[in-house]
Design a protein around this nucleic acid. Sequence first.
RNA 1: CGGGGUGUAGCGCAGCCUGGCUAGCGCACCUGCUUUGGGAGCAGGGGGUCGUGGGUUCAAAUCCCUCCACCCCGACCA
Length: 506
Amino acid sequence: MNTKTKTAISPTRAENYPLWYQEVIKAAELAEVSPVRGCMVIKPWGWGIWENMQRVLDKMFKDTGHENAYFPLFIPKSFLEKEAEHVEGFAKECAVVTHHRLEQGPDGKLIPAGPLEEPLVVRPTSETIIGAMFAKWIQSYRDLPLKINQWANVVRWELRPRLFLRTAEFLWQEGHTAHATAEEAWEETRLMLDVYAQFVEEYLAIPVIKGEKSAGERFPGADATLTIEAMMQDRKALQAGTSHFLGQNFSRAQEIKFQDQTGHEAFAWTTSWGVSTRLVGALIMAHSDDDGLVLPPRIAPKQVVILPIYRNDAERTTVLEHCQRLQTSISALSFSGIPIQSQVDDRDLRGGEKKWYHVKRGVPVRVEIGPRDVAAGSVFAARRDTGQAVNISCAEFLAVLPQWLDSMQQGLFDRALAFRRQHTRDFHDLAEFKDFFTPRRQETEEPEIHGGFAIAHFADIPEVAELLKELKVTVRCLPLDAERTEGRCLFTGKQTDTRAVFAKAY
RNA sequence: CGGGGUGUAGCGCAGCCUGGCUAGCGCACCUGCUUUGGGAGCAGGGGGUCGUGGGUUCAAAUCCCUCCACCCCGACCA
């Protein structure tokens, strides 16, 4: 590392946000691009974050009455041909398996042989194959509701991949449910959106706007798509999770039928909902700074790292022993019901180097203990979020640690919320709206900076979509909790009581 | 998939325009000494199919063509 640079990450966010993002991932050892185009390798620290996400979400799903199951990676092409709108939505991104055998050619190279009778599509999502199974499992209203979740990988052949945000293969969970009534299915759709919002706000410390997607942004084949939208530090929006009310579209296509209490046959009402490893990208872009990753304590794989400082073997022994005692004490503690995980980093690295290693990885609290601390029974402790550092007694530190972690969690959320509010504006004038989304720094090589989130009255008709396209702005959502006030659509002048959030988006 | 850019040691880069000793530099790595509450100093050292394949030439990192990968912008995005 160059000691002359003031920040651990170069370029900084202000200098080049997209590059900064990639550098943070590299410096924090979250993931790498793989030899396979568009696919990433998730490294242990990044995987630890995803594991925590999985653990928390999985419990939330089970607490709301869902069960896990697993469905095949491969989907017969014919399955996808059953729902026209659905297929059209993602056909361009599908990977297709056409052969089942490799043979060695004369030049020693392997040649696909044994063509499949019916090509298999690598799942881009599993509505169709799960629907096919639901159709078998559901006979009577007594079989409903059926509430299944699966943790899986999916493939969408992306042309412009970015680590965590958009990769050809990614990991996610997809929930699929079937219900006897529209009301119940709608309730499920709403409930899971709330679960997502709660998770993202309480664990990832990212404030979200809950809303419904406009017709143009809706999931293909869905009657309604609900979303949670978050603002990143470059003021762009990121869709952090979606929950779809599929109506009877898929049950009609796949014959998910049941006999109701009156003996009549009816199509089930289905939902699907998912979040992906994209959340890791959201986490990075929401909180990290020019020194690297900043992790909210509740999702961090480790909350505390202890760095022993010593000059010789004798000191090493005493200092290490002291560190391990501290670790044992910490392991008995928890914050907000979460056990505090700590780690002693005893690698043979120079102090400064080791310190920056953990700063870049975003470990919430860094503790440094040297011989003087051992003698005094004290520790040097620093917070990753504010950089605030103190020298206090061991006992004091242990007493204050849970509060530190809680306040960091809250502090990160508050900071992100304040940032979003600062860059969210109401609009009643189209010229001002356009100005809001016009790049500010065109004269330089630096990436553009645009306004942020714009809120305005909106009539959901195709003409508006065309106009927005020119500005490279999208309708992020129609907020669910917005007050229904009458006004004129910013674009068409039509009278409407619908207001929408507009932004540039990932 | 369209436009632009970049591929040289683990990482970051110079060299290329104008072809010519054994291809350099910083960080990292190894050895030794010194240093030690902090991204250490000095000395020595290891590590390279110059992205791939072909072409031009006495001679290619350098010029020409092919392909691949990555980055940026756009289109697309459940």
